[in-house]
């Protein structure tokens, strides 16, 4: 018994070191921009760059758009499949997993061929059209995570009976989806959204082939041009990811009516 727990401690510590040492090294390195002294100069330099801010904000907007489009696509689909077409669920699930099998380069070349300048719908010829393609690509990339998260969320509540209860009270389909299903799988949607966000933020292939100035290509470019700033950015991305994960947990564990922050109690009038 004692030895087992010793071994597992050892493994945990080794795994922790494997993960933390490079992180610490990167952090240490990111502080050495100024000679002979530790400073946050690299971080300051990142934030002073207009290109960084533009790329980051653009990525932010694009991934938010992808999240909304993805949820609007996946929630009704998963709902309908669970409610009316349970036999099709394996098929839909398989389709949702395709982006994990097919490289995104293939996807974006498909986009460029389908919607290129000589096609019936030349989306790539305008900025707006190309942005739309980018968001569409993001939606596809996020499908495996979105579908899983939302489908699991629906498994956790009895959507069949809730739907019937709402129907017997006179609610229309749209009202049921918006007023009953959506709020009850909000935690699932939010966790899907955070996963989507972190994928979109780091995404490189689609953005660079569509020639969009997003965060992913910016990071790669920066890695070629600079020494200290990429390390600082990597550390900040880590921080952001952790914050997102913490938020995801908080959302997932929240009971209806509770505030996100535990020290402010929910209303129990």
């Amino acid at each position: 018994m004692k030895r087992v727990s010793l071994a597992s401690w050892l493994i945990t510590i080794l795994a922790g070191l494997y993960f933390l040492v490079p992180l610490y090294a990167a952090f240490q390195f990111s502080l050495q921009m100024k000679r002979d002294t530790l400073s946050f100069a690299a971080y300051a330099s990142v934030f002073q760059s207009d290109v960084f801010l533009r790329a980051f904000v653009f990525s932010l907007v694009a991934s938010l758009a992808a999240i909304m489009a993805g949820a609007a696509l996946v929630v009704p689909t998963a709902y309908w499949v669970r409610l009316r077409l349970p036999k099709l669920r394996p098929v839909v699930e398989f389709i949702s997993l395709l982006p994990l099998i097919i490289p995104s380069v293939v996807l974006v070349f498909g986009h460029i061929r389908m919607f290129g300048s000589s096609s019936f719908l030349p989306l790539t010829t305008t900025d707006l059209g190309t942005n739309l393609l980018l968001v569409a690509g993001y939606v596809v990339l996020s499908l495996p995570y979105m579908f899983r998260a939302i489908d699991n969320g629906m498994a956790a509540i009895d959507i069949g009976t809730l739907t019937e209860a709402a129907e017997s009270l006179g609610a229309s389909r749209a009202r049921i989806i918006l007023g009953v299903i959506f709020p009850n799988i909000r935690a699932a949607i939010v966790s899907g959204a955070f996963l989507t966000f972190s994928i979109c933020l780091g995404e490189f292939a689609i953005a660079s082939l569509l020639n969009r100035q997003t965060f992913g290509p910016y990071l790669v470019q920066l890695g070629q041009d600079r020494a200290y700033e990429p390390a600082a950015l990597a550390i900040m991305s880590f921080g952001l990811t952790w914050i997102l994960m913490a938020l995801m947990q908080a959302f997932a564990n929240r009971k209806p009516g509770q505030r996100l922050l535990p020290f402010r109690k929910g209303p129990t009038r």
Binding site: L162, E164, A166
Partner: peptide, 18 residues
């Protein structure tokens, strides 16, 4: 169902959790 003006009670309560 929604046009029939019928009230229904289920074994599993089926209250809206949110």
């Amino acid at each position: 169902a929604r046009q029939r003006q019928i009230g229904m009670m289920f074994q599993s309560y089926a209250l809206f959790p949110n």
